[in-house]
C-alpha cells in the first residue's frame, strides 16, 4: 500500500476522523434513546460535539504527587489504541484497511487497552476515589474480558480462522445469532461491561466514588478518554453486528444493524439499576463465562464431527 493511502487510513478513514465523528454521533443516539425511554426530550444532536470542544478548551489541572508523564500520556495511548483497532474491523461494510492472520486477538487486546489505561490513570493519582475506581475498573476488566473473548471466538472457531476478514466473509452468508444465540447475548452484554454503561457502571458510580478512576482528569485528558469510549462503542457494535447478525456487507446494513444493537443496549441501560461490583463479577463468572465455555465446547465437538457451522 502506498504512503498516501496509509495516511488517509490513519487520518480520515477508517481510523481517525471518521470513527471520531461516528463515535460522537453514536454517543448522541445512545443518550437520546435513554432520554426518550425516561420520557425526557434528551440532548440536542450536537451535544457530544459541544461537550468535546468545551473539554478541549478548558484548563487541564495536573494534580500533585503523581507521575506527570504517565498522567499526560495515558489518555493519548487509550485513544490511540481504540483508533488502531478501527483499522482491523469492517467499518461501514468495507473491507478492513489492514488484515493479517490473528488480527481478531490483536483487535480485542487493543480494545482492552482503553480500560487498562483508565485503570492505570486511576491508580496513578493519590486520590482515594480514583483508587477505588481503578480497582473496580480492573476487577470488572478481569470478569467480563474472558466471557467476551470466548463469545467472539465462537464464530472464529466455526470458520476456522482468526482473521476478522475471513470470519466476516463467512458471517455475511450466515446469521450466526441463530446457531450461537448464547455467544451473541454474552458479546452484547460484554460490550456494555467494556464501556461501563449501566448496569455495569460501578467503576464510575458517581453516587459512591465521585467519578471513579477519572476523578482527577479535567479538560484534555477527560475529552480524550471520552472520545476513546465513543470509538470503542462503534467498533464493538461493528464487531458484534458483523459476527452475529449476518454481517455488514454494505453501508445500509451496517447502520441498520449497529443502530438496532444500540437500541437494545440503550433499552437495557434504562431497564436495569446499577449492579454492585461483586454482583457484576458473580454474573460474569458464574453464568457468562460458563455458558460461553459450554457453547465453545459444543461448537468444537460439532466441528470435529464435520458440521460446517451453518443451519
Amino acid at each position: 500500500m502506498n504512503a498516501i493511502g496509509m495516511l488517509t487510513n490513519l487520518l480520515f478513514f477508517p481510523a481517525g476522523l471518521f470513527v471520531l465523528v461516528t463515535g460522537l454521533a453514536y454517543e448522541w443516539v445512545d443518550r437520546k434513546l435513554v432520554a426518550r425511554f425516561q420520557n425526557r426530550l434528551g440532548p440536542r444532536w450536537f451535544q457530544p460535539l459541544a461537550d468535546m470542544v468545551k473539554l478541549l478548551s478548558k484548563e487541564e489541572v495536573i494534580p500533585e504527587g503523581l507521575d506527570v508523564r504517565l498522567f499526560v500520556a495515558l489518555p493519548v495511548v487509550a485513544l490511540a489504541g481504540a483508533l488502531t483497532a478501527a483499522l482491523y474491523v469492517p467499518l461501514v461494510g468495507l473491507n478492513p484497511a489492514h488484515s493479517f492472520p490473528g488480527d481478531l486477538i490483536v483487535t480485542l487486546y487493543l480494545l482492552s487497552l482503553l480500560t487498562m489505561c483508565i485503570g492505570l490513570a486511576g491508580a496513578n493519582t493519590r486520590d482515594r476515589f480514583s483508587l477505588i475506581g481503578a480497582t473496580r475498573t480492573l476487577t470488572q476488566l478481569f470478569s467480563y474480558e474472558a466471557p467476551f473473548l470466548l463469545a467472539l471466538l465462537g464464530p472464529a472457531i466455526v470458520v476456522g480462522s482468526w482473521q476478522i476478514r475471513e470470519v466476516t466473509a463467512y458471517a455475511n452468508q450466515h446469521w450466526l445469532i441463530l446457531t450461537q444465540p448464547v455467544g451473541f447475548v454474552i458479546a452484547l452484554i460484554g460490550l456494555m461491561g467494556k464501556l461501563e454503561l449501566p448496569p455495569f457502571d460501578a467503576p464510575e458510580a458517581e453516587t459512591e466514588i465521585v467519578a471513579g478512576a477519572l476523578t482527577e482528569y479535567s479538560g484534555r485528558g477527560l475529552a480524550l478518554f471520552r472520545l476513546g469510549k465513543g470509538v470503542e462503542l462503534v467498533i464493538g457494535l461493528t464487531l458484534v453486528a458483523a459476527f452475529f447478525l449476518g454481517g455488514v456487507a454494505n453501508p445500509v446494513a451496517f447502520f441498520i444493524k449497529t443502530l438496532a444493537l444500540l437500541l437494545i443496549i440503550a433499552g437495557l441501560q434504562s431497564l436495569f439499576a446499577r449492579l454492585r461490583i461483586d454482583q457484576a463479577v458473580g454474573l460474569w463468572w458464574r453464568y457468562g463465562a460458563l455458558l460461553a465455555l459450554v457453547q465453545l465446547l459444543v461448537l468444537i465437538i460439532l466441528r470435529f464431527w464435520g458440521w460446517n457451522g451453518g443451519l
Partner: peptide
C-alpha cells in the same frame, strides 16, 4: 430535563 440544554450533574469538581 436539563439535558436539553446540555446540562449534566458531575460528581467531580474537576469535570
Amino acid at each position: 430535563d436539563l439535558e436539553r440544554f446540555g446540562v449534566k450533574l458531575q460528581g467531580s469538581p474537576r469535570h
